[in-house]
Write a protein that binds this DNA or RNA. Structure first.
Length: 350
DNA sequence: TAGACGTGGTA
DNA sequence: TTACCAAGTCT
């Protein structure tokens, strides 16, 4: 049931959105009545999972340029898609993106319901609701980090995440309007991204400043409460950069699952407390002075780098030689680019 | 269900 | 430098 107070709140936010909506490449201007292309909504929503708008823009433009519709993406080579995703992170998204594109191409079109969308790989509760609302006009309740924060503040919910999440969802569900649910979903997320920000929220210009319980209580900036984070451990490893005399470089495609799954990288040791050496070829290895430092979601990595030059005709234990003219550092995940940046400087002087 | 899973920007 | 944070999903 939606009572009139909640309907009024949604209307206030939609009115604000009509005047302040950000212009984004995947977005249709508010109130135009036009429905955006489900393919583009899906692609942008997957890219935006745990990822900032600024980071996504360039990737979105390249993907839609290379693969303008879901059929084109479904027909793409896996390696091309992984290379195009390189640097954006959370690479399971790219693997699932391809699975999803192929499933959609096989069935002819995207499902137009929350339940149908939820069945697809890489589409969870948030993304299913976002596509259902934005692309298909369904009154699905969208709950992401922005909505959690806005709901926690609007209702001054002081219990910590993730425990309080069902309460926040109930608030969000009551606010979801039947009219313009897609614009409303984007409006709450814009509010969270531009005004109701994690630190120093701009309560003075917020369209919901009057009904906001946290603003009244003075608790807005400290909500939502979260469980304390655990300190990240440090892991170490060695990356081996092999250059053949003809300039080819030894690279390997990582296993499909796990960290950087399916991505191209330098052969190396395990990443752990004290990993065992694992050079991919017999060679005169030179250890570089510097190390590549990189922080993943759950650990810090310090990667020592060893380089070697080897003659042609050698067959490595693992990986394959990529010709110099084909090698593209842009196809590597960021940590592997960092290794290359350091190794390249040394190899030039070898 | 809690942990795995990237990266770049900001304070 | 360190820690936190951003339009989550999968197992």
């Amino acid at each position: 049931m939606r009572d009139t107070a909640y309907s009024g709140l949604s209307a206030v936010l939609l009115d604000w959105y009509d005047r302040h909506a950000r212009s984004l490449p995947w977005r249709v201007p508010p109130g135009s009545g036009a429905r955006p292309d489900p393919y583009r909504v899906w692609l942008s929503e997957v890219m935006l999972q745990q990822t900032t708008v600024a980071a996504v823009k360039g990737y979105y433009e390249r993907f839609t340029s290379f693969w303008p519709d879901v059929g084109a993406l479904a027909a793409a080579e896996d390696a091309d898609v992984m290379a195009a995703w390189a640097g954006l992170g959370y690479y399971a998204r790219a693997r699932n993106l391809l699975k999803c594109a192929r499933a959609v191409a096989a069935r002819g079109a995207f499902p137009d319901t929350y339940e149908g969308l939820l069945e697809l790989p890489g589409i969870g509760p948030y993304t299913a609701a976002a596509i259902a609302a934005i692309a298909f006009g369904r009154p699905a309740t969208v709950m992401d980090g922005n909505v959690e924060r806005v709901m926690a503040r609007l209702h001054d919910e002081r219990a910590a995440l993730p425990g309080v999440k069902p309460v926040l969802y109930a608030h969000a569900e009551r606010l979801t309007p039947v009219e313009r649910p897609g614009d409303y979903a984007q409006a709450v997320m814009d509010l969270g991204a531009t005004i109701c920000t994690p630190r120093s929220p701009a309560c003075g210009i917020c369209p919901w400043r009057e009904p906001c319980a946290a603003r009244l209580a003075g608790t807005a900036a400290e909500l939502p409460k979260k469980a304390p984070k655990v300190k990240k451990p440090v892991r170490t490893g060695v990356a081996y950069v092999v250059r053949r005399t003809d300039g080819a470089l030894l690279l390997e495609t990582r296993p499909e699952t796990g960290l950087l799954g399916g991505m191209l990288g330098w052969p190396g040791t395990e990443w752990g407390v004290d990993p065992e050496a694992a050079p991919p070829v017999d060679a005169a290895w030179r250890r570089l002075e510097g190390e590549a430092r990189h922080t993943f979601t759950h650990f810090h990595l310090r990667l020592a780098i060893e380089v070697a030059e080897v003659p042609e005709g050698l067959s490595p234990d693992r990986g394959r030689f990529v010709p110099a003219e084909v090698f593209d550092p842009g196809a590597l995940p960021t940590v592997m680019r960092k290794v290359w940046r350091l190794a390249d400087g040394t190899l030039r002087h070898l």
